[in-house]
Simulated scan of single mutants.
Amino acid sequence: MGKLGGKLMWAIAGTAANKMARSYTRSALHRDDGAPRLPRKARRQDGMGMMLGWAVATGVILAIADVLTEQGKDSAHAR
């Protein structure tokens, strides 16, 4: 039962952190009247540079996830 309580605590903490991050991000990206703070060109996101940037960012995230997965396998195998 102790493991379930710990997992539940982490789930609640993660949910609260996610909600807080979304709230801060939303307030940083919008003015008080609800209009976006980004310039029109950044809001459109239809350029080749933007697509390339998203592809690079996605690759970096997947590479980090792959490394973390491998480290988890190595640490579990060492036990």
Rank of each mutant, 00 (worst) to 15 (best):
M51E: 06
M9H: 11
P36E: 01
T25L: 13
L52V: 12
S75G: 02
R37H: 02
T15Q: 05
V60M: 13
L62Y: 14
S23A: 12
Q45K: 03
K7N: 08
L29A: 14
V60A: 13
M50Y: 07
R79Y: 09
G14M: 08
I61R: 12
R31A: 11
A65G: 06
H77E: 15
T69I: 11
G53V: 00
W10A: 10
L8G: 02
A16R: 01
A78H: 13
K7I: 06
A55N: 04
A78C: 08
R44G: 01
D74F: 12
D33G: 00
M9Y: 10
S75V: 09
T15F: 10
D32L: 14
M50N: 04
M51W: 08
S27M: 14
A13P: 03
G53R: 00
G59I: 03
R22S: 07
A63C: 11
V60Q: 04
A78M: 12
G53F: 02
D74S: 14
A78P: 04
V60E: 00
H30A: 01
A57Y: 04
K73A: 06
S27V: 13
W10C: 04
R43G: 04
R43E: 07
L8Y: 05
A76K: 14
T15G: 15
I12P: 03
G49A: 10
A35C: 03
H30V: 02
M20H: 10
A78I: 11
G6F: 07
R43M: 13
A57K: 09
T25W: 12
